[in-house]
Design a binder for these strands. Structure first.
Lengths: 333, 333
DNA sequence: GTGAAAGCGCTAACAG
DNA sequence: CTGTTAGCGCTTTCAC
């Protein structure tokens, strides 16, 4: 594929009549070399079609100009926004972007990090499945930035879902609901805890009864069991861990002939693609997921420049907002 | 981040009382070294927590164990399946997966390839925007595999949409439709050409009139203009370039009070997430996009092993199938 | 079967 | 400001 020997700085150096190091400097540290020499070297390099070898650069300098993003499930539309934001930010900084999925497994996550460690400058961990302790430990050795997860001492970018959950409760309360059930996501999911706490906080003083069910798989297929479980509680409002689950719930309710929102109101989280055109269109807590991805990469880049010095943990909190559509309405009766 | 000097094969060699080259061999070419020595080396390496440096390996050997996938628009759900399939296949082969987007620009695509050339073993180009000539040229220097694009002499994996388009025509004809309009995708889109040809072929001998409109942006927002354009033709059936556009069309038709499928039938391509729960649920040509991504990576890997020898171009054609839902019905009148 | 040694392409002191 | 000189960590002849 690449037989015709790539041209190296040595080729350029010879052709330009200077030392290899001068070529290197002309290319990287424009100011440390005579303007005329520099111009000449650049022209020769250009003419010879010189392309630097990122590998050699990285091996020598330790900087790879690459970041890796690990997501639990590459299939989940929830992550698309985050991935997009991260990828965009990276490529804007001319940073190579590696995407990898961990299959919802903490072990796999750790292995991937170990595996990629030498090839990247840092990791964006989206909805990491690793326990806090593991993250602290990994952070000793690696440059990490978390998305939708907060851990003391580590940089993170999260879309608020606590304050947002309060808004959900207020919205439902104002519609006359007196009780809601939260259909919980994965057991160790950090956002699940946040959401639950937000709902509980919001309910306090509003004469709203909140119940937690689950965990349910945060996918459309999880909606069947979740909906059935919710119905038996008699609650008039259902808050699902995410839109995928909410859509599954809508589907199941429709099968069972339960009218939404007339009999039951349904709320989701994330405002994923499709949330606006499912039936009824889903009321959901929307947030700038792409911003979160963007910020995480940014935190990584910041951290990189601060050399070895331990940076005070930067936490970015992005605001969410409730998008009210057709799946919520006045409480039944 | 990584201050405590990584252990290298030299450390292991010293500790094990052998030469570095022996360590290297023990790790890569198990058979070229005495079983006992090998065992010993492996244990020492393990004990010392040795991790090979992919960079150094790549620099020396020329193989990076990495592939890059370029997609025009990382935001488009159409690509999610392809990305997923490719990522999965790569990680199964312990190949690092780089994802990059080209913003629908041929120039950007070329630049990215140039940029990543030294860091990867090959490229998966999904729906490449580059003209055939450019691809041939690039293939001289790089290991390429195409997804949803066929170019003579280059390996590719495509989901059939030509035969599938015939099925669409037959389906519509059997419902009594006598004319359809194709809402075309981007001007230089290869699948757009395939689909159009498939529709024309299918219409021949079926007393079906086909019209092509567009190009339209293959996104939901494109649906407004597309739907309006389609309506003025008086056609009773609309075939949209992809599901995104089709969903946009559904939305516009609903706004205008045009009943689907009673007044107009609508068909899409891809069966993306959401196609089953929009209203009415979309009839669409589904295909194994993830398989296409998977196959493309596979082609890359095959090609890599065949050393320099030019491999006869392998083309993988994946079958599509028509998923009939609620957006198509008997022709009006 | 194993060791010595020469790089892969680049950067970073260190002199001059 | 520029050239010389070591490597970065690994693989790969080439001898022994």
């Amino acid at each position: 594929m690449d037989s015709p020997k790539r041209t190296t700085i040595y080729d350029v150096a010879r052709e330009a009549g200077v030392a290899a190091s001068t070529v290197s400097r002309a290319l990287r540290n424009p100011r440390r070399v005579n303007a005329a020499t520099r111009e000449h070297v650049l022209q020769v390099a250009e003419r010879m079609g010189y392309r630097p070898s990122p590998l050699a650069t990285a091996l020598q300098s330790g900087r790879t100009a690459t970041v890796a993003m690990l997501v639990p499930d590459i299939t989940n539309p929830h992550f698309f926004g985050t991935i997009k934001g991260a990828e965009r930010r990276a490529s804007a900084a001319r940073i190579t972007f590696i995407l990898s999925h961990t299959e919802e497994s903490a072990d796999s996550e750790r292995t991937q990090i170990e595996h990629l460690a030498r090839s990247v400058d840092g990791f964006v961990l989206a909805s990491s499945r690793l326990p806090d302790e593991s993250l602290w430990e990994l952070a000793e050795e690696h440059n990490l930035a978390l998305v939708n997860r907060e851990v003391k001492g580590l940089p993170s970018a999260v879309v608020d879902s606590r304050v947002g959950s309060r808004q959900i409760v207020e919205h439902l309360a104002s519609l006359g609901h007196r009780s809601l059930v939260y259909l919980s996501g994965p057991h160790r999911s950090w956002p699940a805890g946040e959401r639950w706490r937000g709902l509980v906080d919001g309910a306090r003083g509003l004469d709203m009864k909140v119940t937690r069910l689950g965990p349910f798989p945060p996918r459309v297929v999880g909606g069947g069991a979740a909906a059935d479980a919710a119905l038996v509680t008699g609650a008039t409002a259902v808050v699902a861990h995410n839109d995928l689950l909410a859509i599954g719930v809508l589907r199941r309710l429709s099968e069972r002939g339960v009218a939404v929102p007339d009999q039951v109101s349904v709320v989701g989280y994330d405002d994923i693609f499709g949330a606006d055109f499912c039936v009824p269109a889903l009321t959901t807590l929307a947030g700038p997921q792409d911003e979160a991805g963007r910020s995480a990469v940014e935190l990584l880049l910041e951290n990189r420049s601060r050399s070895t010095a331990r940076t005070p943990d930067r936490r970015v909190m992005l605001p969410s907002h409730l998008v009210i559509r057709d799946s919520t309405g006045p409480a039944a009766r």
